[in-house]
Simulated assay, not measured.
Amino acid sequence: MSLSLLTDATVLNSLETLAADRATGALTGDRGTFYLLAGDVAHVDSPFAPDLGLLLTGSGAVDPDGWREALDQGGTRGRVGRQLVDNGRLAAGALELCHLGVLFDAAYFALGHVGRTPRFRPGIAHWLGAVRPVPVDTVVRESQRRREQLQRIWPEPDIDSAPLVRVPGARAEALPTRRGRTLAQVDGVRTAAEIASALAWRTFPTLVELRRLAADGLVTAVSAQPVPPDPSLPWHTATQDEVDTALLRRLRDALEAL
Rank of each mutant, 00 (worst) to 15 (best):
R202P: 00
S223R: 15
A193W: 03
A94S: 15
S59E: 09
S143Q: 08
R132V: 09
F204I: 11
S14I: 06
L5Y: 06
W201H: 12
V131Y: 07
M1V: 12
A254D: 09
D230W: 13
L233C: 01
T138P: 00
D86G: 10
R22V: 06
A20Y: 04
A92V: 06
S223A: 15
A172V: 07
L18C: 10
F109M: 05
E142V: 04
E69P: 00
R31M: 04
A214F: 07
E156S: 07
V189N: 09
G74D: 06
A238E: 12
V102Y: 03
A130H: 02
I195H: 01
P122C: 03
A198Q: 07
A125M: 13
S197V: 05
R179H: 11
R145Q: 14
R178C: 02
V80A: 12
D63K: 11
E173D: 15
V85W: 04
D244R: 07
A254F: 00
S143T: 14
R147L: 13
R22E: 15
L18Q: 06
L251Y: 13
R121Y: 08
H99L: 03
D72Q: 14
G75V: 11
L213D: 01
T203I: 15
L199N: 01
L54Y: 00
P231M: 11
L56F: 11
R252T: 08
R147I: 04
S161D: 03
V44I: 09
A92C: 01
D30C: 04
A162S: 13
S46L: 10
L52K: 03
D160K: 05
T138V: 15
T220S: 06
F34Q: 04
Q151N: 11
G60K: 10
R145K: 13
A70V: 07
P163C: 13
P50R: 07
E69D: 15
D51V: 08
L103V: 15
Y108E: 12
P176F: 10
R132Y: 07
S14P: 01
A110H: 07
P205Y: 05
L210Q: 05
W235T: 14
A130Y: 02
I124Y: 00
G217F: 09
T33P: 05
A174V: 09
W67S: 10
V80N: 06
G93I: 00
A61P: 00
E173I: 04
T182M: 14
V114K: 13
R152H: 11
L164K: 04
L3H: 11
T117S: 11
V11T: 12
P47G: 13
R68H: 14
V208R: 10
L95V: 07
V219T: 07
L233T: 05
A174W: 04
L52R: 09
V222L: 15
G129N: 11
A61T: 14
P50C: 08
V165C: 11
L5N: 03
L90N: 06
S14W: 06
R212S: 14
L213Q: 01
P157L: 13
P133H: 09
